[in-house]
């Protein structure tokens, strides 16, 4: 959708945390993305090196976990993995479901390098 602008937003958050922690470098960024978030993982990965140039996160490893779409049925209490456009319960066909995962678009965690520079 708008993966490059998402990357800029992500980097803003990452830079803020890195500054608070007085980190020297961001070595890795972990995201969690579900198919119902609308984010294309492939595009996000392509955008990241462009957006991160010249930032504290330049060269950081970007790892994106693709979370499955899972539901809990309020009717029959079953948990199921479902397709992103078939969210009703596959067991009892109820539409009274709770989405357990699949719509995430999260900055999950970051890894910082705080070792001082060796002169």
């Amino acid at each position: 959708m708008h993966e490059l602008s998402l990357c800029y937003g992500l980097l803003k958050q990452v830079e803020q945390i890195a500054n608070e922690q007085q980190a020297r470098q961001v070595s890795a960024i972990y995201l969690q993305v579900g198919p119902l978030s609308g984010v294309e993982i492939k595009l996000l990965k392509q955008s990241f090196p462009i957006a991160s140039q010249g930032t504290i996160a330049e060269g950081a490893r970007l790892e994106i976990e693709n979370l499955p779409v899972r539901i809990h049925c309020r009717n029959c209490e079953e948990e199921s993995a479902v397709k992103n456009n078939q969210l009703c319960c596959p067991h009892c066909h109820s539409a009274s479901i709770q989405l357990l995962s699949g719509d995430e678009m999260l900055l999950h965690s970051i890894k910082l390098n705080q070792e001082p520079y060796h002169v």
């Binding site: 999260l106 900055l107 890894k111 390098n113 705080q114």
Partner: peptide
């Protein structure tokens, strides 16, 4: 020696 920080914030946090 690296520090790992869990953030769990939406990528659209600012919006």
């Amino acid at each position: 020696g690296q520090q790992s920080i869990t953030v769990l914030k939406s990528l659209l946090n600012e919006n």
